[in-house]
């Protein structure tokens, strides 16, 4: 069995204890609610899109260390990025979580996961992948809403 240190990296615990971009955004910001029906975690993602750019993002709700830190790091990573870059980031993250094949699409802008790579260990704990991807799936919904 992979050790818990692979999962609970210090940067993850830091984002869990002090989540970034907590809160809500008023309309007309896009908003979507996500649920993990297995564990009851609930998350709401607010995104303000100005033109082609995600100018602001906030996250509210409750969840475990993995879902909360993933949401926190996601909010930092997408703020100020173009929609194309955000979509590319979502794809990169899902590739890391082994739930999407690497599209290797030259048309997609090059993006770096940065801190988010700390969540790589989650793949070794398959039941937790849903925790890590909850915020990302909710983000996609918010962008489409």
């Amino acid at each position: 069995m992979p050790g818990l240190e692979d999962l609970y990296r210090e940067i993850i615990l830091d984002h869990y204890r002090s989540p970034r971009n907590r809160g809500e955004l008023p309309p007309p910001a896009n908003k979507a609610e996500g649920h993990n029906p297995l564990c009851g975690d609930e998350i709401t993602v607010f995104v303000q899109v100005d033109g082609d750019v995600v100018s602001d993002v906030k996250v509210s709700g409750q969840g475990c260390s993995i879902s909360q830190s993933s949401a926190s790091m996601m909010s930092q990573a997408i703020k100020g990025k173009s929609l194309d870059e955000v979509r590319a980031l979502v794809h990169r993250f899902k590739v890391m979580m082994s739930i999407e094949e690497d599209a290797d699409d030259a048309a997609q802008p090059a993006v770096k996961l940065g801190d988010l790579e700390a969540l790589q260990g989650v793949v070794k704990f398959p039941v937790r992948i849903k925790c890590a991807t909850l915020a990302w799936n909710t983000l996609v919904e918010a962008l489409e809403s």
Binding site: L4, Q62, G63, C64, S65, Q68, R128
Partner: peptide
């Protein structure tokens, strides 16, 4: 501590 994290630690 979130129950998911408790369960994870207990599982070890």
């Amino acid at each position: 501590i979130h129950p998911h994290d408790i369960s994870q630690v207990l599982d070890e």
